[in-house]
């Protein structure tokens, strides 16, 4: 018995090593972000507290760039408004109506403003932490955008913080399309460049040109249709494949993320209910 004890004491460091190794491996292979627990993520109280404190200082650093982006986006939207007002006026003339009802589809979405307190771009799986959580109305699977384009999807929600899966994470796949076209592909990050992503599985009859804008398809309740994603850099098609694979330059600059908007879809629950797999009933 004492020999056995001696053996254990002598090799205790190896046992400990194996134990820690197994624990580390267990963590590593639970990488799927949908299985993560809030305590082991950057959305926990301590980590988010530290990030919040530093963000109070560092959030001032890139204000100039962000301001420029906002101004540009603002002018784009203003132009859009003028264009739409023009269209509305033409229709009014056509139908001789004083007022026009607008499309109710847009009021489906609400925006919640949140600050990014932590963000990475150099890992193979990148995540973002924001300082709004469950008590602010954030729920998992909400889409997140900033002034330039898409950012990610909410994954873990704490009371006052939430963690997003960044677009720069291969676990995120988004249904996107070329603006003005109907064919839908799947946007995914290939881990190479934080400024570029891949749009794959675009059907071969899709039409596109270099420089075309890619937007979200609106085929899920996460993002509304038409949120800007990026522009096409290059496209290729495998000979035996029936799909195009396009390289997309992302609009969002992930290195200077600061303020983002979380999208709340008021029809989400309804959609989920409708899309539920119907139970197969016995007809006989």
């Amino acid at each position: 018995m004492s020999e056995l004890l001696k053996f254990f004491v002598k090799y205790s460091s190896w046992f400990l090593f194996v134990l820690y190794l197994v624990a580390g491996l267990a963590l590593l292979f639970s990488r799927n972000p949908y299985q993560h627990h809030v305590y082991l993520s950057s959305a926990n109280v301590v980590a988010s507290g530290v990030y919040r404190a530093t963000n109070n200082i560092t959030s001032y650093f890139s204000l100039r760039d962000i301001n420029e982006d906002l101004q540009r986006r603002n002018s784009d939207l203003e132009l859009e408004i003028y264009k739409l007002q023009d269209v509305i006026r033409k229709y009014q003339e056509k139908v001789h109506a004083d007022t026009m009802t607008t499309d109710p589809a847009l009021s489906r979405y609400q925006f919640l403003i949140a600050h990014v307190i932590n963000n990475s771009i150099n890992h193979s799986h990148n995540y973002i932490t924001i300082e709004k959580g469950r008590l602010d109305g954030i729920e998992p699977e909400m889409g997140v955008i900033d002034q330039n384009g898409i950012v990610g999807i909410v994954n873990i929600v704490g009371d006052h913080t939430a963690r997003l899966i960044s677009v720069l994470n291969p676990y995120l796949r988004l249904s996107c399309k070329v603006k003005g076209e109907a064919q839908v592909g799947s946007l995914v990050w290939d881990g190479r460049d934080p400024g570029e992503a891949i749009l794959e599985e675009l059907p071969k009859h899709a039409k596109f040109a270099k420089g075309d804008t890619v937007v979200t398809s609106g085929y899920s309740s996460v993002f509304p249709e038409g949120v800007p994603v990026g522009t096409i850099v290059s496209g290729s098609r495998d000979r035996e494949d029936n799909f195009y694979t396009l390289r997309i330059k992302l609009f969002t600059d992930f290195s200077t993320l600061s303020t983002v908007r979380v999208i709340r879809d008021s029809m989400k629950d309804e959609l989920k209910e409708v899309e539920k797999e119907p139970e197969i009933k016995n007809v006989n």
Partner: peptide, 21 residues
């Protein structure tokens, strides 16, 4: 040490494993 850095940077076990080795 590795675990703490992992939690902060959402890298799940990468630093933990490397630090242990």
């Amino acid at each position: 040490l590795g675990l703490i850095v992992d939690i902060f940077s959402d890298t799940y076990g990468m630093n933990t494993l490397a630090c242990t080795v």
